[in-house]
Design a binder for these strands. Structure first.
Length: 90
DNA sequence: CATTTGACGCCAA
DNA sequence: TTTGGCGCCAAAT
């Protein structure tokens, strides 16, 4: 199932690495299912799934069930940082 | 079963 | 660069 694959893929994301929704969707079988990926993660607030490591293709963080602030902090903690985040932290 | 919703992505204006 | 609109998909209504 697409949903299940998404879970697996996101769980497999190594520390310090981030995937875009598009990438996850692609690995799950449909590159165009990026929306569905976000929807799935949104509904499934499972602690095993590091949804904070999934970001938008734009380089923006997108959303997060615990709040975008936590997501930002986690990503910074894992070493991921870019202009967008720096700007948001301001 | 038909629609709507939403943590997205890309292109045209 | 910033909008707006369209496409595409899973889950909730």
């Amino acid at each position: 199932m697409f949903t299940q694959k998404v879970y697996e893929i996101v769980k497999k994301i190594p520390k310090g690495k981030v995937l875009t929704y598009k990438e996850v969707a692609k690995r799950a079988g449909n590159e165009k299912a990026s929306r569905a990926v976000g929807n799935i993660l949104h509904k499934n607030h499972n602690p095993e799934i590091p949804c904070h490591r999934v970001i938008r293709s734009d380089g923006k963080l997108g959303g997060y069930n615990k709040g975008a602030v936590e997501k930002r902090r986690k990503l910074k903690e894992e070493g991921y940082l870019d202009k967008t985040i720096a700007k948001l932290q301001k």
